[in-house]
Design a protein around this nucleic acid. Structure first.
Lengths: 230, 230
DNA sequence: AAATAATTTGCGAGCCCCGCAACTTGCTGG
DNA sequence: CCAGCAAGTTGCGGGGCTCGCAAATTATTT
């Protein structure tokens, strides 16, 4: 029968080898995530992950160069989707709107996951050993997003300043995402992730008004910086 | 007599033990950085670092839980300085101006380092094994900066939204810093770090005008997002 | 179907990180 | 001043990780 979505989005006709490789990588990544969230990262052995999937431990290290990488690898899978999502937004949408909506879409599915799993996930991601890899996967995401932004806006490959700006904007998005997630990690019963994320992104897109135009003893002016340098 | 800078900034009168500990940590961190930049991270052994400083390898792991952490630890030392620098800016300065100047100050000294060292440093930081830890140290920096911002602006500890905004702003700064550094890593003979950094920070502080008001087929409007939530 | 290319696997080496228990060093109250 | 306590250091040993290598297995090509 095999009625999977091969034709859904321009399937690149992957060879048997390629599809096996992807499947293996995917399986290893999810096995790692599941086992880690169930037994805790400290009790995660490479051998267990490999056994779970039915390959040798040596093969695991052909796919991932560390346990941490495998556990956080699910983030990478999102990247590809985000890129497509942004480019699929109607081209009339203002840039920020398109970005915010595209990012939101990536996170709406998360609400569906079983509560129990989400809770364990939050605990898991607090582990120091995963923090670095988690950030690393976000950094990769930002690069992808920056390219997508540049593509959407029509920035040339050789427009250094333009690409830097795109990179910067992608960073802002990634940062808002990160802050939202961390806040969400730490405050269990508060708002769910998506509303926070949208709020932060909107705030960023508007130039952080709540801080710069604060009523108190603060100046509402934009920064006026002394001359950069000779 | 001991006429050192004890009174400069409210020295906490550290005990002999404490000062030894700090010295050891500092020495280990710098030994790690130096050896790594000279011989490459792949040829860095914990034992070498420890020997260089004159302690046992076991002691090294009492201070740092990984080589990566040690190599990137110099970033942490900046954090404390950044906090003080921001709070020391004249309180009349607009927030963004103060932040930009404080951040700039942390990086002006870098230009003085010997060229040779800087080059090796740039290569070193490209190593995948250090990338995660590098980002981690930046994340820590952002937390410190967020607190400093909140303190300067006068945000209460229980003002959740306010603190979130401060966190967000600190993230923007961290992000601009990161983008600037990465750009600087990859383009050897281009501008030096500081000018790029100041340019990016200014751009961020103004709400990314170069992208959102781009002449072409893009709308210059701010994002108008569908209602975030009830 | 043979030739070729890519993957998987077992083995072994070298290193890392940490718990533990002795040992050394700084600190504190009499 | 010094006895006794607290804190830091060290060697040892163990479990684990990551990788290079070469043989075996599995796809792909001709």
């Amino acid at each position: 029968m095999s009625t999977d979505g091969a034709s859904r989005t321009s399937a690149p006709e992957l060879s048997l080898r390629e599809s096996k490789k992807r499947a293996a990588r995917h399986a290893l990544s999810w096995a790692a995530l599941r086992l880690a969230s169930e037994h805790g990262f400290d009790n995660l052995r490479v051998e267990d992950i490999a056994t779970e999937v039915g390959v040798s431990a040596r093969t695991f290290n052909n796919y991932f160069s560390s346990k941490e990488e495998a556990v956080c690898s699910f983030n990478v899978e999102r990247q590809e989707r985000l890129r497509e999502a942004l480019l699929a937004r109607p081209s009339r949408e203002p840039l920020w709107t398109a970005v915010i909506n595209a990012v939101s879409d990536q996170h709406t599915a998360d609400g569906q996951a079983p509560r129990e799993f989400i809770d364990r996930f939050r605990i898991l991601m607090q582990h120091p050993a995963l923090h670095g890899e988690f950030l690393k996967s976000h950094a990769r995401m930002e690069v992808i997003l920056a390219d997508a932004i540049a593509e959407r806006v029509g920035i040339d490959a050789d427009d250094t300043d333009g690409r830097l700006s795109a990179r910067l904007m992608a960073g802002l998005v990634g940062n808002a995402t990160r802050v939202a997630m961390i806040h969400w990690f730490q405050n269990e019963d508060e708002e769910s992730l998506l509303p926070i994320l949208r709020r932060l992104l909107t705030e960023v897109s508007e130039g952080l008004p709540s801080l710069t135009t604060r009523p108190g003893r603060l100046s509402g002016e934009r920064a006026r910086v002394t001359a950069p340098a000779p």
